[in-house]
């Protein structure tokens, strides 16, 4: 089954991004596909390569990047929400791209399920 995901909160402040990642990884391990994760609201803050968590903490951003690299997950950052929050192409971590809100609606149309993680 194709499962789309929306992440509405930034990393670290809220558990949403962690839960979304673990959900996505487990969905893929179970043989489903996660064609797209759409980052909206403060969720756009998951995409910046400037993130530097302490050594002994998980790296939420790199984890998403690896999921994209290993499984072809399309990590889409909303352009409007991103611009509001200073997220631009030059600070994107690998695997992320900036695009429009239409990508969220499209994921809703083309995926079998759309699951939202937020606050």
């Amino acid at each position: 089954m194709k499962i789309g995901i929306m992440v509405s909160e930034g990393p670290y402040n809220h558990q949403a991004s962690d839960t979304a990642y673990l959900f996505a990884r487990n969905a893929i391990e179970k043989g489903h596909s996660v064609p797209r994760v759409f980052f909206y609201h403060d969720g756009v803050n998951n995409s910046t390569k400037l993130t530097q968590p302490p050594q002994d903490d998980r790296n939420v951003v790199n984890r998403w990047s690896k999921l994209a690299e290993d499984h072809g997950v399309d990590l889409v950052v909303c352009v409007a929400a991103g611009m509001r929050r200073g997220i631009t192409d030059d600070i994107l971590a690998p695997g992320f791209r900036i695009s429009g809100l239409g990508q969220l609606v499209e994921a809703g149309i083309q995926c079998d399920r759309l699951v939202t993680f937020g606050d």
Partner: peptide
């Protein structure tokens, strides 16, 4: 619509959800 990832191409056209 757009240049979607390959496995989402099929069945997207004309779908009303």
């Amino acid at each position: 619509m757009s240049d979607m990832m390959d496995d989402m191409d099929e069945g997207g056209e004309g779908v009303v959800k």
